[in-house]
Write a protein that binds this DNA or RNA. Structure first.
Lengths: 327, 327
DNA sequence: TTGAAAGCGGTACCAT
DNA sequence: ATGGTACCGCTTTCAA
C-alpha cells in the first residue's frame, strides 16, 4: 500500500482526511504485522522529536523528584518522552548539557537548576528552544516559570508565629545565589514589614547550602548572636532540621525554648522529633503545571510567557508553640 | 568540504584515520560555525540512538531516585541520554511503555518496576533489546540484574538482634508479589534457620504495600498475635515507621518494649524518634552498576548475563537495644 | 587517506 | 481522498 496514506491513517490528527474503510484496513494490517512507526525517522523529517529535557541539580533531592514525576506524567499523556539530565559540576556544565539536549532535538526544555545566574537560559533563547523554569524565577521574566509563592509562604510562617505570640523572630536563610534562597529571604523581610516589624540584618543568617550540616552551623552562629529570640523561620526543611541539631548541642529544646518552622514539607518531617511545622509546597503539582505550560508553548497554543505561582499551605505540627512567658 | 571526512573527523573513535591538519581545520570550522551534529539523523542511519530508558514505578520513591541518579551519571559520562518513564497503572501498562521506548529506538532498557510477574521482560527479550533489572531479581535469571543481597541483609539484622539477646523475633514482610518483599522474607527465614531458629508462620505478617499505613496495620495484627515478642525486623524503613505508629497507639515504647529494625536506610530515618536502626543499601551505587552492566551489554563487551549482588551494611541507631530482663 | 553515492524510514508537499 | 516524490542530515560502504 501507499506510504503517504498509511502515514496519514496512522496519525489520529490527519486520519480524518482518509476514507473510513481504508483506515480500518491499514490499522488492521499494522496490528497484524506488529508495525511500530519509527519515531527517529519521523523526527528527522518533521523536525519534532516529541521529547522534552529537564535539567535538575540533583534527582534524589526530595524537592525535584516529585517535580519530575508530575512533569513526566503530563508529558507522557501527550506522547512526549522525558529526558532527565543531571549536570555533574566537575564534568559538564549546565549549558553544555543544554547543547547536548538541543542536539537531540528536544522540543522543549525545563530548567530546574536553581542557580540564580547561569547562561543556560541565554543558550535556549538564542536557539529558540521553548523553555520553562521550575522552582526558580528570573528577575527579568523573559522566560515562563512555575514557582511557589515564597512571599505568601513566608507571610504564612510569620503570621503563624506572630499569632502564637512571638515577637523576636529570626530567619535562617538559604544561599543567596540560589533562587529559592533569595526569594524566601525577601519574602521573610517583606512579611515582617507587613506585620509592622523591621528585621535587622543581625536577625538573619545565611546558610552556605541547603543541607542539615550547613543549617546546623548557621543556626549556631545565629543563636550565639541572638540568644533572646523565641522563633526561627528556616528557608527550608533541611535547614530546620539542622537547627534541631544546633539546639540539641546547645542544650535548648524545641519547641519549649525556641519555635522552628521549615519550608517545603518534605517527606518524613512529620516523624522527626518534634514533628516539624512547615509550609507545604506541592512540588508534584508544580511539575504538572510546568508540563502544561511547556506543551502549550511547544504547540503554539500561547505566545506569552506566563509566570505561574502556586499557593503554599501552612502545616502546623509540634515544633512551634507560644513563647515562654518568662523574662 | 566533504561530508564523510567531516563525519570521521568529528568522531573521536574514527578520527585516527584522518590527517592531522585536516582534523584541525574541520574542528576549527565546526567551532566557528557553531556546528552541532544532529543526533537524530545519526540515529536514523546508524541504528543506535545513544539513549537508554528506565521504567520506574515511582520516581519520587527514595529508593528509586538515587538509582536513577547513579544510572544517569554513568550513562551521560559515556554520551548516553536517559529517558525516564513512570507507568501510570490507570493509563498505560508497563509493557506498553516498553513498546513506546523501543519505538524511540532506545539502545537499552532498565527495568526497576518491582512486580515479580509482568511481561515487560518477555517483550524486551523478543525484541532483543538489552535489558537489565535493578532492585529486582528474576527467578529464571534470563536477564542480568543488580540487587542488594537481601539474605545477607537479613542475616545482619537477625545477627544484630540475637547478639543483643533477643530470642523471639518477628518479621513484618512486604507484599509478596514484589521482588524485594519476597526476597527479604526468604532472607529472614533463612537467616533465622542459620542461627538455629525456626520462625513460625505466626511470626511473620505481610503488609499490603510498602507504606507507613500498611506497616501500621500489619504491625497491629502482628503485635496482637505475638505480644511476647521483643523485636521486629521490617522489610523496609517505611514499614518500620509504621510499626512506630502502631507501638504508640498501643502504648508501647521503642526500643524499651520492642526493638525495631528497618531496611534501606532512607534519608531522615536517623532523625525520627527513636533514630532507626536499619540495613543500609547503596541505591546510588546500584544505579551505577546497572549503567555499567547495560553499557557493556549494549556495546557487546560481554555476552553473559551477570547477576550483580551488592553488599548491605548494618547501621545501628537507637531503635534496637537488649530486651528487658523482666518476665 | 579521502571522495562519492546510497540510503536509514518516515513526512510534507504537490499533483491528481 | 489518495498517489508520487523529494528529502530531513547523517553514516556507511565502496571506490579512488
Amino acid at each position: 500500500m501507499h506510504p503517504s496514506t498509511v502515514s496519514r491513517a496512522l496519525d489520529p490528527a490527519r486520519r480524518g482526511r482518509i476514507g473510513e474503510p481504508v483506515v480500518r484496513r491499514i490499522l488492521e494490517a499494522a496490528e497484524r504485522l506488529g508495525y511500530r512507526p519509527d519515531t527517529v525517522a519521523a523526527s528527522l523529517r518533521s523536525g519534532r522529536s516529541n521529547m522534552v529535557g529537564i535539567i535538575v541539580p540533583d534527582i534524589a533531592n526530595p524537592v525535584f523528584s516529585p517535580i519530575i514525576g508530575g512533569l513526566e506524567d503530563v508529558l507522557s499523556a501527550r506522547g512526549y518522552a522525558l529526558i532527565v539530565a543531571d549536570p555533574q559540576p566537575q564534568r559538564t556544565g549546565a549549558d553544555d548539557i543544554v547543547q547536548r539536549l538541543v542536539a537531540r532535538r528536544v522540543d522543549g526544555l525545563v530548567l530546574a537548576n536553581v542557580a540564580l545566574k547561569d547562561n543556560s537560559i541565554e543558550r535556549c533563547l538564542s536557539w529558540k528552544v521553548p523553555v520553562v523554569l521550575v522552582n526558580r524565577a528570573e528577575a527579568e521574566a523573559r522566560v515562563p516559570s512555575v514557582v511557589s509563592d515564597d512571599v505568601a509562604g513566608m507571610r504564612l510562617a510569620v503570621a503563624h508565629l506572630l499569632e502564637l505570640g512571638h515577637r523576636h523572630i529570626l530567619h535562617l536563610a538559604g544561599p543567596q545565589m540560589l533562587s529559592t534562597g533569595s526569594l524566601r529571604r525577601r519574602g521573610f523581610v517583606e512579611a515582617m514589614h507587613e506585620a509592622g516589624f523591621t528585621p535587622a540584618d543581625n536577625d538573619i543568617e545565611e546558610a552556605e547550602a541547603f543541607t542539615r550540616e550547613a543549617g546546623r552551623a548557621a543556626a549556631l552562629r545565629l543563636l550565639a548572636r541572638q540568644p533572646e529570640a523565641t522563633a526561627i523561620v528556616a528557608a527550608n526543611d533541611l535547614l530546620a532540621l539542622g537547627i534541631y541539631e544546633a539546639l540539641r548541642e546547645t542544650g535548648r529544646r524545641c519547641p519549649e525554648d525556641l519555635s522552628v518552622i521549615g519550608h517545603n514539607d518534605m517527606p518524613l518531617v512529620d516523624l522527626v522529633d518534634p514533628p516539624l511545622s512547615t509550609i507545604r509546597i506541592s512540588h508534584r503539582e508544580m511539575g504538572e503545571q510546568t508540563g502544561q505550560l511547556l506543551l502549550d508553548l511547544i504547540e503554539g497554543v500561547r505566545g506569552d510567557a506566563p509566570y505561574v505561582v502556586t499557593a503554599p499551605l501552612l502545616v502546623v505540627r509540634r515544633s512551634t508553640q507560644p513563647p515562654r512567658i518568662s523574662r
